[in-house]
């Protein structure tokens, strides 16, 4: 059983990587584009050959391109981007994230998703699909007869949820129906700055695979800055948490994956774990 869950989680993270591949490539720019820029800094005055991309705008006369964030300057084709080093999470439909149930009533669960609004999880979005034909048919009682298919959560539960809808004006709507979604009964959750998540995943998932293999731990990395992990014993888990915190503080440096591998192997020798 344990092995099965292992496989599941590994598959899942790879799936995640594919989705976030673009973001991650942004982060892993060329070596010469690792300049730290701050808001208002002029990135270029050559507006004929360059266009403002992510995190940048024209000035009011359209003669300069300036940065909006504190981050790393990066040039892609003719676009100038700034990859932020600090910031907050903005929910997007389709994201798989870790949520904490903070309130519940008969109509909805209120979930803390580390964004500006709380997410709402309605009970109809917790019913397993395929076993609810009477409900999908549109007629009948409107709710499935089989009460066992309805999952019930309590305040304080950790859930892995998917965002169904999210925009600027309305509260994001969540669902627990889907692969790998639902309540987590074991392991624990740590949080880091959301813009640093792509670094924890690494290029094509290289960082996360390395962490997983060296510490023998299950990890689930989500876009809102929260990371669920469960290891064989506390020593491995502690090493992994320290590694992730080290990644977060050195997110803007070059050659991080190799350095982290060295760090973990050294630490394992020092701590005497395998």
């Amino acid at each position: 059983m344990e092995n099965e869950t292992d496989k599941e989680v590994i598959e899942e993270t790879q799936e995640n990587d594919g989705k976030e591949g673009e973001d991650f490539e942004d982060f892993e720019g060329e070596e010469d584009s690792r300049d730290v820029v701050v808001p208002g800094e002029v990135l270029t005055e050559d507006t004929k050959n360059f266009l403002p991309g992510r995190g940048t705008i024209y000035n009011s006369e359209r003669t300069k391109i300036i940065s909006l964030n504190i981050g790393l300057k990066q040039i892609r084709k003719n676009y100038i981007n700034v990859i932020p080093l600090r910031g907050f999470y903005t929910p997007r439909p389709g994201d798989k994230i870790i949520a904490l149930v903070v309130d519940k009533n008969p109509v909805k669960y209120k979930c803390d998703i580390n964004a500006k609004d709380f997410g709402t999880l309605k009970p109809k979005n917790t019913i397993k699909r395929g076993k609810m034909r009477s409900f999908r048919g549109g007629g009948g009682s409107g709710y499935p007869q089989d009460e066992a298919n309805i999952e019930r959560f309590e305040i304080g539960d950790i859930l892995i949820v998917k965002i169904l809808s999210a925009d600027r004006l309305n509260k994001p709507e969540l669902t627990t129906v889907g692969k790998y979604l639902g309540k987590k009964n074991n392991g624990f959750v740590i949080s880091i700055d959301p813009p640093k998540i792509p670094r924890v995943i690494g290029r094509d998932g290289s960082m996360i695979k390395m962490l997983k293999n060296l510490t023998k731990t299950n990890i689930f990395v989500t876009q809102n800055g929260r990371i669920w992990l469960k290891g064989e014993d506390i020593a491995h888990e502690r090493l992994l948490v320290e590694s992730i915190q080290k990644i977060a503080t050195e997110a803007h440096t070059v050659g991080l994956t190799d350095r982290m591998q060295e760090f973990i192997i050294n630490e394992k020798k020092i701590r005497g774990i395998e």
């Binding site: 909006l68 504190i70 813009p195």
Partner: peptide, 11 residues
């Protein structure tokens, strides 16, 4: 404000 990562036009 800049340290918080809030998008801003300048300091």
């Amino acid at each position: 404000l800049a340290d918080a990562g809030i998008p801003m036009k300048s300091l």
